[in-house]
């Protein structure tokens, strides 16, 4: 696999505040990499350093194995924080300007406008656009030079549910073309739906990194209900039960390692109980995220 981005001991301090602290990270080609973290955890600062707008205090990073230069940035499409364009220029003219800066042909413009469905409004001034249209124009601009790497920082910030779904579709479409995507977000659901790998930042420190598929591995929780009065005690006699909680009228059974919902089901059946409700719950990224954050304190 090709390493797209290698970050080595990258730090940024603003006075006493350590916005990013000795960050080490690699992103391989083809990954959709999610950067998670609460507000102020250093996501945008990190991306700002990667894109040359924030000067690092210490450490370095390599894009495609090279020291960063403006020319390397031209191969990357990036939207950091909010979409930024000249408000008095039309969408079309803004993209023409960006094509000049990125040194790519202006013929790419209709294609990217089409992709984000802005062709109809391309001649209207940017300042007349709705927030969702601004976000989509930003994505169009990032795709203008057909980049191999795309960086998106909170691409669904402030959007309505439909806008969020649209942007998610666009990201999936782009990822399907084999592009590497680095996505910073605090919307965990978002990351779980589109990312292959993720890292969690907290107060400038990386506290976790790994594939998204690993989420949900580990201890399983099974939701059970049945029309039996002493279900609680029966569940506790199952050798695979580590604890039982009653939540919203159903029993949440946390399993021991190596035991699964299937085993519990057959145990109940052998005990002469037919469950009216039995669901194996995969741990959500949200849950894992909150656990990691509280552990990292």
């Amino acid at each position: 696999m090709n390493t797209v981005l290698a970050i080595q001991d990258l730090s940024k301090h603003f006075g006493k505040i350590r916005a990013v602290n000795n960050l080490n990270l690699t992103v391989e080609a083809g990954q959709v990499f999610g950067m998670l973290g609460p507000n102020g955890s250093g996501k945008t600062t990190t991306l700002g350093m990667l894109m040359g707008v924030t000067n690092p205090t210490a450490g370095k990073f390599l894009w495609f194995g090279e020291e960063p230069t403006p020319n390397v940035r031209r191969k990357i499409g990036a939207v950091l924080e909010h979409p930024i364009f000249y408000p008095y220029l039309s969408g079309q003219k803004n993209l023409e300007l960006n094509a000049m800066i990125k040194e790519c042909p202006a013929e790419n413009i209709p294609r990217v406008l089409d992709l984000v469905e802005l062709t109809e409004r391309k001649d209207d001034k940017y300042k007349t656009y709705s927030l969702g249209m601004k976000q989509r124009l930003a994505i169009a601009s990032a795709l203008l030079n057909d980049p191999t790497v795309l960086i998106l920082d909170e691409p669904t910030n402030g959007l309505d549910p439909m806008g969020i779904a649209e942007i998610r579709e666009i990201i999936k479409k782009i990822a399907a073309h084999g592009k590497t995507i680095i996505l910073a977000s605090h919307l965990l659901d978002e990351v779980q739906k589109v990312c292959t790998h993720f890292a969690i930042l907290k107060k400038g420190n990386m506290v976790y990194s790994g594939p998204v598929d690993d989420v949900g591995k580990g201890l399983e929780t099974v939701e059970v209900n049945a029309d039996v009065e002493n279900l609680n005690e029966i569940l506790l006699t199952f050798p695979g039960t580590s604890s039982v909680n009653l939540e919203n009228g159903v029993y949440q059974v946390t399993m021991r390692e190596g035991y699964h919902g299937k085993a519990l089901n057959s145990f109940l059946f052998e005990s002469g109980i037919v469950a009216s409700h039995l669901v194996t719950k995969k741990k959500s990224l949200e849950k894992q995220f909150l656990e990691i954050l509280s552990d990292a304190r």
Binding site: M51, G52, F85, P87, I101, K102
Partner: peptide
């Protein structure tokens, strides 16, 4: 407009 930031991100030095 913070376009100076975006210009640098887009590839100007």
């Amino acid at each position: 407009y913070r376009t100076i930031r975006q210009n640098i991100i887009d590839g100007l030095s």
